[in-house]
């Protein structure tokens, strides 16, 4: 209880500030309308009108909540206006990107740990790859995958998501594979273990906690990649594409609803991956601190 109370207070404060912001930002429009109609609205009337504008500058929280509910529960899942439909398309790209990121990240980490030359050659480029804004590369990834015969947008989106998510896995796995100390390595040498035996029986098991710890960051990065990948690629379905459509047609409610749908999706993904991490930790015999 002691931990929940401060959090609730903060969330409540954020909602209060949001309502105040809605009132202040939407007031100009209400006053403008009133001036044109030649009426003098009272404060309570202004307040009521700022809370229910269909194209508000800042929609009030209950408007966004209603739009979210409508998009998630009231629309058929197959409908092009259903947030679940768009969410699943983004989720699919996130999933493929996540898997791609794990495979590439682990493979590179193994290469880097086993070979000194690979470490010196690849590690700087792995860091540089993350400083390059992937959004700039995105349209080129689409052009190239199209030329290679990928029919759908799923392939480039997954590549962009993988591009963002492989890095946390790589960094953690390198750390994890190097975590056995000199004592443990020496012990295996006294057993006459070969390099591959040392890898499979010591380095790999030792790296697993690091691996699972990196997954939460990787899945969040993958979702960002999937959404960003929908923006400059001409996608018409997915949460990112929905934001673009809302922006182009001047429908703020669509933008807000997709933004929050993306946030909910992120929370769910992190929650699921966090659960996997906990189960894995228990199976590996980590005692709760």
């Amino acid at each position: 209880m002691n931990r929940i109370f401060p959090i609730l207070t903060v969330v409540f404060a954020i909602l209060a500030i949001w309502y105040a912001g809605s009132f202040l930002m939407n007031r100009a429009w209400v006053m403008d309308q009133a001036a044109r109609a030649g009426t003098e609205p009272s404060v309570s009337e202004v307040f009521r009108d700022t809370m229910n504008q269909p194209r508000a500058k800042l929609p009030a929280p209950h408007q966004v909540a209603a739009e979210l509910y409508d998009g998630i529960f009231d629309k058929k899942i197959t409908s092009k206006r259903s947030l679940v439909y768009h969410g699943f398309i983004t989720l699919e790209a996130t999933f493929y990107g996540f898997v791609l990121g794990i495979v590439v990240g682990v493979a590179l980490a193994v290469l880097i740990v086993l070979s000194r030359a690979a470490d010196l050659t690849l590690m700087p480029w792995a860091i540089i790859s993350q400083t390059i804004p992937v959004v700039a590369l995105a349209p080129m990834i689409v052009v190239l995958t199209n030329a290679m015969g990928a029919g759908s947008l799923m392939v480039p989106k997954a590549i962009i998501a993988g591009y963002l998510s492989f890095f946390p896995v790589l960094v953690s796995m390198v750390k994890g594979l190097r975590s056995p100390d000199q004592m443990q390595l020496d012990l295996l040498r006294t057993y006459g273990a070969s390099q591959s035996q040392t890898f499979w029986k010591l380095r790999l098991p030792a790296s697993l906690p690091y691996f699972f710890a990196s997954l939460k960051i990787a899945v969040a990065a993958s979702l960002v990649g999937a959404i960003v990948g929908e923006l400059p690629t001409g996608a018409i379905a997915g949460l990112g594409a929905r934001m673009l459509i809302g922006s182009q047609f001047g429908e703020p409610m669509i933008m807000w609803a997709s933004l929050f749908a993306a946030a909910i999706l992120a929370a769910l993904l992190i929650w699921v991956v966090g659960g996997v991490e906990k189960v894995a930790a228990r199976l590996m015999g980590v005692r709760p601190a």
């Binding site: 979702l223 993306a262 929370a267």
Partner: peptide, 20 residues
Amino acid sequence: GLLPVANFVAALPIVGIAPI
């Protein structure tokens, strides 16, 4: 109160606020 909220928000796809 703020640290858990900020940690949570930091993991969200904040790029989505761009159109707004």
